[in-house]
């Protein structure tokens, strides 16, 4: 099933080309859209909402054409913008109810939905207070609530972790994961950090300068590239030799070893080898930064082409 699809999607502004021949297909679940500042993430979302016309190419959301069926798309899609968008003199409850009505819910249903959704995003007593005094974390939660109040089939979340502290970021990411799984609502979430999206996404799209760099399922590339970083006090060479002997792929990386994870058994092999050689293990970490390397690779090739 295709949730959204673009074909040769291009958007030119007077000075820049924000999107350049973008062709992607997105299925259900949580999809991450990663790119640096100005990569064209927000522009893509605006086109998908039918608020901005493409200069060339076309896009479909839930089977509907963005240029001709904008209002129909916006009935069943939610949107959380990257910027502040909350009137400070309204309470979260009032605001969410109002936005529910704007999406076509009758007032009583909007009330029930707002109460439900605010609870799910984690706003309790404070939802009756005016939003002017909210922390960034609370504001992000209300912004998310108004995107979910009408129970959309798909939500676009534009940089939802922006401005959050590490704990707030983790909570927001967990919430996004729940929206995709437990709530059964497909999610397109943007960020300029791949590292954080990798934890919650089923699929990741990387764009740069409006061009598609990569679009693949998380399972796909973590499988082929997952590594574990091992650091031992002494006997690094011995460990490398032993692991190679046992059929693992090992690379020396400064003071540590990078071991490619073929299968879960790799961890057993590693543990046994360390025990057998009687080594002192300092650190063992699954290679998160390696995944970013996977993405960096085509970027540098891209710029080399230019």
């Amino acid at each position: 099933m295709t949730i959204l699809a673009t074909e040769g999607l291009t958007r030119r502004f007077p000075r820049v080309t924000a999107l350049d021949q973008l062709t992607v297909n997105v299925g259900p679940g949580v999809t991450g859209l990663v790119g640096a500042n100005g990569a064209g993430k927000s522009t893509l979302i605006k086109i998908l909402l039918g608020l901005l016309d493409p200069s060339a190419g076309k896009a479909q959301v839930l089977g509907m054409d963005t240029t001709t069926q904008g209002p129909e798309i916006r009935r069943v899609v939610g949107y959380m913008p990257e910027h502040d968008c909350l009137p400070p003199d309204m309470s979260a409850t009032e605001f969410t109810v109002h936005m529910g009505q704007m999406s076509g819910l009758p007032r009583t249903s909007a009330r029930e939905r707002a109460a439900d959704v605010l609870r799910h995003v984690g706003l309790y007593e404070e939802r009756y207070r005016v939003m002017g005094g909210y922390s960034t974390g609370m504001k992000q939660r209300v912004k998310l609530a108004q995107a979910l109040v009408h129970d959309p089939r798909l939500v676009f979340l534009d940089e939802p972790t922006n401005g959050l502290d590490p704990q707030g970021r983790d909570e927001m990411l967990a919430l996004i994961r729940r929206i995709g799984t437990e709530f059964g609502i497909s999610v397109l979430v943007t960020s300029h950090l791949l590292g954080e999206l990798e934890r919650v996404c089923d699929h990741v799209i990387v764009i740069d300068g409006g061009k598609l760099l990569r679009s693949s399922s998380i399972a796909d590339f973590t499988q082929t590239t997952q590594t574990v970083t091992v650091e031992v006090e002494e006997g690094r060479q011995a460990l490398a030799a032993r692991l190679t002997e046992l059929g693992e792929t090992v690379v020396e990386h400064g003071r540590s070893l990078l071991v490619q994870v073929r299968a879960p058994e790799t961890f057993d092999t590693l543990r046994d080898a360390v025990c057998d050689l009687d080594l002192c293990l300092v650190r063992m970490e699954q290679g998160r930064q390696r995944i970013e390397d996977v993405f960096k690779e085509p970027v540098s090739r891209e710029s080399a082409d230019v």
């Binding site: 909402l49 916006r74 949107y79 913008p81 910027h83 968008c85 909350l86 704007m102």
Partner: peptide
């Protein structure tokens, strides 16, 4: 900037 929220609806 509440306007974009209205416009993201029908």
């Amino acid at each position: 900037r509440v306007l974009p929220l209205y416009l993201s609806r029908p």
